[in-house]
Design a binder for these strands. Structure first.
Length: 433
DNA sequence: TCTGGGGTCCTAGGACCC
DNA sequence: TCTGGGGTCCTAGGACCC
């Protein structure tokens, strides 16, 4: 039997005489959220500006102070400054001018305000960002259909079989894509093209903004090994600190360790992955479609809330989160059966609880009921800064026989849900929806 | 004066079943 | 009276990413 298989194999013709080398591109939009604002307010070009933080409507503020004035004529002096910002937000995007001050994404607004008090601050315009995100992705798909969506401002593209995708290692196609995106949206992007996703991702950072970088297998030692270990997509702050402790600072340092050593110190799976990554090995395909696993809604309060003292406010937020996640499920056509909650305490510790139902649902009342059960199993003595609701084990609603979706929820008058402990037990009878 | 909101994947223990 | 060995599901936490 084994002999037979070998013989057959020997007579198999090669799958392809001269296979194309895999060419994978990573593209991300330059300072996307900020660039979107610059399209509307070109008078801010070149100024330090950060996007993020807010529930505030910048347009409302601006147009209230300058009624009837077109956006591009609003004087620069009228824009809100970081030093005047109050609140708990973090920075989503900083312009290159703001980055000069050491301000960067994910930084707390208050810290950023100390570094660059005069920076202009605007909230994210999600509608406009989504519109432009769809536009640039559509532009790419028209040219190179094998595109993997990696978020609002990022994609991978498989150049391998695209006509012209191999010319100059991918540079010709990358230039075409840049030009078409620029024409369609007015925005710039940076592209890295390499033998795989891992290296393409690193390469796209080499020439920002509006840059193209081509990396070949042979460039591993000269271009990739000198990079900080943290530049590997998948090495975060924890792994980086641990690597550093072992004296491993660069990608090359990791590559210099044996696979066995890495497995011993970082675990069978992560250690082996680290070794492959450092040697530039990554066979992951570009995936054009995927199903969501979970959907969630969460919110950080403007001030920390206490389960007893702020019971009413918390209850209202809780209901709202359940309704929003249910609306998301229905809008996108999914049902799920694991309902979870997430709390963040004032000391920033996080707790999660979840409960798997025996049926699928997208009903806000069912979600709230199940989430309320989970809430009973968590410590509510500390003050809370965040509350979240999640629905997991998702399935497209259409894939289930209707009988499986959800037995109709109890319609027995107003539901009484003991979500948060009562301040005074005698109030309990008024606790209803 | 700290640290958003939306996700994915992995690990690890216990329940439960064969 | 010395206790196997898989497999799968559920749950909680955590790392990481955009």
């Amino acid at each position: 039997m084994a002999q037979q298989r070998r013989d057959n194999w020997q007579h198999e013709p090669p799958a392809r005489f001269a296979p194309n080398m895999r060419r994978i591109a990573h593209l991300d939009m330059d300072a996307f959220f900020a660039s979107v604002e610059l399209l509307r307010y070109p008078q801010l070009k070149g100024l330090p500006m950060i996007i993020g933080g807010g529930r505030r409507k910048a347009d409302d503020l601006l147009h209230a102070s300058h009624p009837g004035l077109p956006a591009h004529e609003i004087p620069v002096a009228a824009f809100p400054r970081l030093k005047d910002y109050v609140g708990r937000g973090v920075i989503t995007t900083a312009t290159y001018a703001a980055r000069q001050f050491g301000v960067g994404s994910a930084m707390g607004m208050m810290k950023a305000a100390r570094l660059c008090p005069e920076a202009i601050v605007l909230p994210v315009d999600f509608d406009e960002v989504r519109r432009l995100s769809r536009a640039f992705k559509e532009t790419i798909r028209e040219i190179a259909p094998l595109m993997e969506d990696r978020g609002i401002d990022e994609v991978y593209i498989d150049f391998t079989e695209v006509p012209g995708g191999q010319r100059e290692g991918g540079r010709v196609l990358a230039r075409l894509i840049q030009k078409c995106i620029q024409e369609r949206t007015g925005l710039t992007c940076s592209i890295g093209v390499a033998p795989n996703k891992l290296i393409a991702k690193m390469a796209s950072e080499f020439n920002k903004p509006n840059g193209i970088s081509i990396v070949h297998e042979a460039d591993l030692q000269t271009l990739i090994w000198p990079l900080a270990a943290r530049k590997i997509n998948g090495v975060g702050p924890k792994a980086d600190a641990k690597l550093e402790k072992s004296g491993l600072r660069t990608v090359g340092d990791i590559a210099g360790q044996s696979r066995e050593w890495l497995v011993e110190h970082f675990g069978r799976s992560y250690g082996a992955w680290l070794h492959d990554a450092a040697w530039g090995r990554d066979e992951r395909p570009v995936v054009t479609e995927s199903e969501p696993v979970s959907m969630s809604r969460e919110t950080t309060f403007e001030r920390d809330l206490h389960a007893v003292r702020d019971r009413e406010a918390l209850g209202a937020v809780f209901t709202d989160l359940c309704e929003r996640v249910a609306a998301d499920l229905r809008r996108k056509g999914y049902v799920g059966r694991t309902i979870g909650i997430k709390l963040r305490y004032d000391d920033f510790r996080t707790a999660t609880r979840d409960l798997t139902l025996d049926h699928y649902t997208d009903d806000p009342r069912v979600i709230r009921q199940a989430a309320g059960q989970s809430l009973k199993r968590v410590d509510l003595d500390r003050r809370l800064r965040l509350l979240g609701v999640r629905v997991g084990k998702l399935v497209p609603a259409g894939d289930l026989p209707p009988s499986e979706v959800r037995p109709s929820p109890p319609e027995t008058g107003p539901q009484t849900l003991e979500m948060f402990p009562d301040a005074t037990p005698k109030d309990r009878k008024f606790d209803s929806d």
